[in-house]
Structure formats: C-alpha cells, structure tokens
C-alpha cells in the first residue's frame, strides 16, 4: 500500500466513525456541530479521491449551509417553545 492508499483508508475510516457519531448524537444542536465536522471530513475524503470540485461543494454545503439551516430551524423551534 502506498501513501495515498493509506491516507484514503484512514480518512474513510474516520468518515465512518464520524457518521456513527452524527447518528448517535440525539440532541440536534450538538448534531449541527458534529454534522459540520462530518462535512469537513467528507471534503477531505473527496480531496483524497482527487475530486477538489466536489470537496469545495462538500465544505460549502456540508460544513456551512446545512448546519446553518439546522441552527436556524432550531432557533425557530426553541423560540416557539418559550
């Protein structure tokens, strides 16, 4: 196994582990943070797959837009519950 393959394997395993964490984070607020981390890891995995275009969108969407939408939705719901 060369260095690329080891890197890819390492990142993929991290992705899998983080995904488990995302699923098991029951609190949506905490989940917004774990899913953002998951998005970053995915982007790194895409870089390791030589897909910088996809990595950029994964950062834009997974690490920024989706967590932001979750936070806004939560803000709305928490606000309504007060």
């Amino acid at each position: 196994m060369d260095a690329t393959a080891i890197l890819q394997a390492f990142v993929l395993l991290l992705v899998a582990a983080t995904a488990t964490g995302v699923i098991l984070t029951r609190d949506p607020l905490a989940q917004a943070i774990t899913v953002s981390f998951f998005g970053l890891l995915l982007a790194i995995a895409f870089l390791a797959f030589q897909a910088p275009d996809v990595a950029l969108s994964a950062i834009a969407v997974g690490a920024v837009a989706l967590p932001l939408m979750i936070l806004l939705a939560l803000a709305k719901i928490r606000g309504g519950a007060e």
Binding site: A65, L68, M69, L72, A75, K76, G79, E82
Partner: peptide, 20 residues
Amino acid sequence: GLVLLLTEFLEQTLVLRSRS
C-alpha cells in the same frame, strides 16, 4: 436562491427573537 432560502428561515427567527 440560497440567500432567499436562508432568509425564509431567518425571518421567523428574527420575528421571534424580537417578540421574546
């Protein structure tokens, strides 16, 4: 599109925040 989409969520949050 994305700014519009996010402001849809934001509008509500803001309104609520100002109410509380």
